[in-house]
Amino acid sequence: MKRLIPFAVFMGLIGLFGFGIWWNTWHDARYVPSPLIDKPAPNFALPKLDAPDETVTKASLLGKPYLLNIFGSWCIACAEEHPVLMADARSLGIPLVGYDYKDDPNDAKRWLADHGNPYDLVIADEPGRTAIDFGVYGAPESFLIDAKGIIRYKHIGPLTPDVIKKELLPRIAAAKREAP
């Protein structure tokens, strides 16, 4: 019986190492969980991309849930995500707000003209200062913000049809139930 103890410890270690290998094959080491989930979105006041004189604030978007999608014309993964947004933006059932991050407005306008514009509204953060308040560390990122301005969900990296179906749509439905 006592001989089994070292064996059990050994098997425990094997299990631990096995878990480490298995975990590292699928989890994204770049993923940093946001501390802002279920907290109020930061206040912001940013110009519209196509009308820089008009300012969009957090307060002006309150009242119904929306999806805030951080993108930039310089961002390669955003170009990857873009066809998905073009195809699925309407099926979200909530406004899709584009957040042009650290981008020359002219580049962004040209990019949207070339690839199509899936957004109901695009706001521009050329200096990237407001993005720090949102904890943005790389585009694309998507925030689901509910009617009260609470961040309900954040996805880091390109949205895929699978992520939209499995993670985003159920949460959108929940947010809409609270504030139709």
């Binding site: 946001s34 802002l36 720090i132 949102f134 904890g135 560390y137």
Partner: peptide
Amino acid sequence: LVARYGDF
């Protein structure tokens, strides 16, 4: 910074 990006 922790309030925005977490303990990471």
